[in-house]
């Protein structure tokens, strides 16, 4: 587990650097995929399989696909990859920063692995995350109604914003 956790955290940081170094959105989406995937892995290893599943399905499966699709549509003639000079410079700087901060806080690591939530082992049915979600919706049934209403409201807002094609608020000028 320790080795897998190490790998996941390392790739998570690498993905964050890949996004933050400001390449073209098309490539940055790849970095986001890496971050989201590794984040899900970290969550699973830390004992939150339900949260990880939700994050994976909704963030990667729903939002990021649409983002990558629209980033691919916005064709740039000269996209900035991680190889180009300003991007590789910021990659260097961020990696140096990570190493520096890691070096400072190195002593704080203990045994290099995380205990999973509730101190259960890897396989169990009732976890903190699932129990938390169940409790939120059973003792707070109003939350469910309000959340559903907010989602519907978001749909209305998006429709109203994108209504009317070339007359609408969102358009290519």
């Amino acid at each position: 587990m320790t080795f897998i956790m190490y790998l996941l955290l390392f790739l998570l940081i690498l993905g964050l650097v890949a996004v933050a170094s400001n390449p073209s959105p098309y490539f940055a989406a790849l970095g986001l995929v890496l971050v989201a995937g590794m984040g899900c892995g970290v969550l699973v290893s830390h004992g939150g399989p339900f949260l990880s599943l939700i994050l994976f399905l909704i963030y990667l499966g729903g939002m990021l696909v649409v983002f990558a699709y629209s980033a691919a549509l916005a064709a740039e003639p000269y996209p900035e990859t991680w190889g180009s000079r300003p991007v590789i410079m910021s990659v260097m700087i961020y990696v140096l920063g990570v190493l520096l901060v890691g070096g400072i806080f190195w002593g704080g690591w203990y045994e290099s692995s995380w205990m999973s939530v509730d101190e259960l082992m890897e396989f169990s049915i009732l976890r903190g995350d699932m129990a938390g979600v169940a409790m939120m919706y059973s003792s707070g049934g109003l939350m469910l109604i309000i959340s559903a209403w907010v989602l519907l409201l978001t749909l209305f807002v998006v429709l109203e914003l994108t209504r009317g094609l070339n007359r609408g608020a969102l358009r290519a000028v």
């Binding site: 309000i146 959340s147 907010v150 409201l153 978001t154 209305f156 807002v157 109203e160 914003l161 009317g164 007359r167 609408g168 608020a169």
Partner: peptide
């Protein structure tokens, strides 16, 4: 936090209503 988000969401179409 949810209340604040609802507030933000609801006013944006009002802001852009004149296109």
């Amino acid at each position: 936090w949810m209340g604040l988000e609802i507030n933000t969401l609801a006013i944006i179409p009002l802001m852009t209503q004149h296109h």
